[in-house]
Amino acid sequence: MNSFLLRQVARGVLPVAVLFAIYLLLRGHDAPGGGFVAGLVTSAAVVLHALANVAPSERARRPRVLGSVWLGLLVAAGTGLVAVAAGGPFLTHSHFDVGSGPATIHLSTTLLFDVGVFLVVVGSTITTLAAFAGGENPR
């Protein structure tokens, strides 16, 4: 799995995949995509990258990304709590329009919630795969 070709492909794929994931995340509210899908795309790309570039012995020492899981939960729950602080029920979302005319950008706290979902999915998927890849001892 450590061939030169795979390494080159993986090196090219990772940034593209991450950009694509961000695109999916941003448009998720209006078109297919969203936090779950974007998270899975990123995970798949990171795993491919790791398989191609990292020797088995190093895999065990890869930093765990469990922090991203916590952060994601915090962001998602925090988004809901903002609404509570503002006096509404938990997880009530707010919407804002920035700019005017054709340049209007629609912003919403739903995106923030989706970012939380994204972080949890990325974190848990990669952590899981890394946990199995680390500590080689095939029997």
């Binding site: 779950f36 899975l40 999915v121 848990s124 998927t125 899981t128 946990a131 199995f132 029997r139």
Partner: peptide, 22 residues
């Protein structure tokens, strides 16, 4: 959609238990 992703998480947990058992 969520069921698919959670299925993956559950499968991972099942596999972790399996290797631990092994």
């Amino acid at each position: 959609l969520t069921a698919i992703v959670i299925g993956l998480g559950m499968a991972a947990f099942l596999l972790a238990l399996s290797t631990r058992h092994h």
